[in-house]
Structures are given as structure tokens and as C-alpha cells.
Amino acid sequence: MLAETPTPAPTMTDPVIRIDKLTKRFGARSAVNGLSLDIPAGTIFGFLGPNGAGKTTTINLLLGLLEPSAGRAEVLGCDTRVSGDEIRAATGALLEHTGLYEQLTAEENLEFYGRAYRMPVSARRDRIEELLTHIGLWERRADRVGTWSRGMKQRLALARALLHSPSLVFLDEPTAGLDVVAAKEVREDLASLSEWEGATVFLTTHNMAEAERLCDRVAVIRAGSLIAVGEPSDLRARGSRQVEIAGRGFGEHLLSVLRARPDVEGLVANNGSLRIDVNGDADVAALVGAIVGSGAQVEEVHRGAASLEDVFFTLMKEEI
């Protein structure tokens, strides 16, 4: 569908984004600080962090809109320093604001960007109808966007980001500021469109529930530095601080040995079960090994499930 826009085609094993020690400084302040990350093709990648963490700056760097102060990044095989035009031609973006022209109709907004991406007339018209129908806004295509609700505008902006069938889409907090219903509709559109299109999605958010629901992999950034990366389930497991052990023989000697361990922060023994609060560095396998080694019998080990939000807050409190 893209005309005159060479889109490098990554394989499923190639990362679509490679970031190597990427740094962006504005004066004395580092907005992005030595960020290194690979993002595989075909995933919805969540880039999590509080306001001011460097998420939007990272997107601007990846789109070649900002020049890095140090380090480098490749998007779809193109160096962001020298191939910004190619990157922008092959990707779609929904940034902090919808970027819609409110005095134009929904169809005209898409028509403009279809022309900008040099889509042939018939392909452009078919694609606009296809996308607006998919998100349920085809009947409202002749409305001026300024008359629409915020949720509808956001869904239209999502359609615009996907208009030229990009293989990679950047979405900067797509549900920020929306009410619960509108946010749910945007998330549903995002999930169905990304599955339907097969595009890789780079999604920034500070909404953990959203990340947990949508993302295959997530990275957590704080003050411009990467502090965790992995699948949400891995991060949840890593972030869990409670281990429950069922068994027998949990005597006072064992309890005092466990309390002396540096990775144990708290301990409660109760009727054949131990509930141990461990710190972030704890090796649970070694801990269980020590319990067994002391002569106790372990029947079941269960690591408590933390939500991604718990993990996020824990990571935010930790020192970098």
C-alpha cells in the first residue's frame, strides 16, 4: 500500500527496534540515560514509566525527530541519526495529542495523511472505509472532528496511525485522559487492530492494568534509565516478595537460621506453613534448599502473585 516508501521487512526473529546506550540530554538534564533495549517484531511492547521518565523523548528519538546525545538506535534496520525520513515513512505514530485537524472531517483527516504517505487514490479510499468501519465510525465520517468526544478522536487518531499499514506503530499514552468507557474502547480497538494488522506496537503508558492486558513484553523506565524488562508474568514473579512454604519440621532452630539470612526480611510460622518475606535479590531455590538442608520437610512452595502495579511501585522505590 505504501508508495515510494521502502519499508524494510523484519523477520519474526529480528528486533524491529535496537537501542544501544541511547542518551538524550537537554542541557544538564538527561531525559534518556544509556538506554539499551531490543524489541522483537510482532509484539505489543509496553514502555512503562511515570510522567517525566523519558518515554516521549524515547519515541521522539526513535522517530528520528531528536538527535541523540550519545548511543544509537535502529528502527526497522535504519539508523535514527541518518534515516529519519525512511523510519517515519515506514512507521505510524499516535503521540501525546491526537494531532487531528478539528476543523476537518474525519474522512478529510485520514485523506490528508493518506496523501502524505502517497497512497494511491483507490487504495486510500478503500483503506479509509476499512478502518473507519472497523472502529465503528464510518457513518460519522463527514462530521467535523471538533464535534466529537475525546474517545472518538482518540480512536480516529489510532486509525490514522495505522492508515498506511506500517509495520511498527508508536503509541504515546493512547488512553491518557479518557474516561473508563472511552479508554476501554480505545484498548479494544488497539488490541483488535494490532492483531488484524500484525504490526509491532511500541506503547508507552503509566497505566499498569492497560500494560498487563495488552502487552507481550514490557520495560520499565525511571528518570531516563531502564530498570526492568521482560514479560509481564516474569516481572510479576520477580516482583513478588512473599514465599509460602507448606511442610513439617519448621522448628525454632530453622526459624532463627532463616531470620539470620540477608535475603529474608520477615518470617511467620503457622501450623505447618511458613510465610517468608524476601527482598528483591532473594534466590528462592537456595532458600528452599537451606530449609530442606536443615532437616525440615517441604511439601509445597508457592510464590505470591504480585500485580504489575505492585512491581511498578516497588521498582519506583528502589535505588537505581
Partner: peptide, 14 residues
């Protein structure tokens, strides 16, 4: 003023 510039700049238009 209308916050449409960043999206325009993120497009392929030179």
C-alpha cells in the same frame, strides 16, 4: 497551538 505539529512532523512529509 492546536497540538497538530508533532503528528505532522512524525509523518513522512519532508
Amino acid at each position: 497551538e492546536r497540538h497538530t505539529l508533532p503528528t505532522l512532523l512524525a509523518s513522512r512529509l519532508p
